[in-house]
């Protein structure tokens, strides 16, 4: 993943709390087995409403979504983050995010910037006032700057670390394989273990066992 040092662009205000991932990426698109092509399905239902902010041409091309508290709640579907990213967002700014959504953002390289509710409202107002004005989130200084003001945003330290250095968590953990192997040697005997070759009823392939 590429390091993310800053994000700059125009804002789109989404004035609503508790936006859940069922809204961001409705279930009918979770059957797709690809990792790309989700952008067009973002907020699929809400976009049927001509008044919905995603249909407002003033905000087309926005790169920063300024949302309400508890954004990304509910289902763990990472497809929600992929969709937002592939639609064109590099960051979501909100007073709070769900835990899993925050983690998913970090993995995808989207910045889940936490700001106090007042600051969030100021940003939304600024976007409404002047949709062409931009905002910058600097991950080095943790400052948010826009036409008419500036403030501080918060990122979980570890999320920031992942984004700033473009860390690949799988590679990072694979670097510790010897420690993991050592840990494994001392595990108790009662841990779950299901070997396909010896357990009846657990099958691989299409002919999964049908007899108890």
């Amino acid at each position: 993943m590429e390091p993310v040092l800053w994000v700059r662009g125009r804002m789109m205000p989404l004035v609503r709390d508790d936006v859940d991932t069922d809204q961001i990426m409705p279930k009918q698109f979770l059957s797709r087995v690809e990792r790309d092509g989700f952008g067009e399905f973002v907020f699929h239902e809400w976009r049927r409403d001509p008044e919905f902010v995603f249909n407002d041409p003033r905000f087309s091309g926005a790169r920063i979504l300024v949302a309400g508290s508890n954004f990304g709640s509910g289902s763990s579907r990472e497809h929600a983050v992929w969709g937002l990213q592939q639609y064109g967002f590099d960051a979501v700014v909100a007073p709070s995010f769900s835990d899993i959504f925050t983690g998913n953002c970090a993995q995808a390289g989207v910045v889940p910037a936490v700001v106090p509710p007042e600051l969030c409202r100021s940003l939304q107002a600024a976007a409404e006032r002047d949709p062409d004005s931009g905002v910058e989130l600097d991950l080095t200084t943790m400052r948010v700057m826009w036409t008419g003001g500036s403030g501080t945003f918060h990122l979980d330290d570890q999320v920031r670390e992942v984004l700033l250095h473009g860390l690949d968590d799988v590679a990072l953990v694979l670097g510790q394989l010897d420690v993991i192997t050592q840990y494994e040697r001392a595990r108790p005997a009662w841990m779950p273990h299901l070997d396909v070759s010896v357990v009846p009823g657990a099958a691989v392939g299409p002919d999964a066992g049908t007899t108890p």
């Binding site: 299409p206 066992g209 049908t210």
Partner: peptide, 25 residues
């Protein structure tokens, strides 16, 4: 297609699968 892909992935990697047709699905 999605279910089939899970079958193939489990077969490739030796992961036990209680899929459609299994008495534990």
């Amino acid at each position: 297609a999605q279910l089939d892909l899970l079958r193939r992935n489990c077969a490739t990697h030796g992961v036990p699968l209680f899929g459609l047709g299994s008495h534990r699905q």
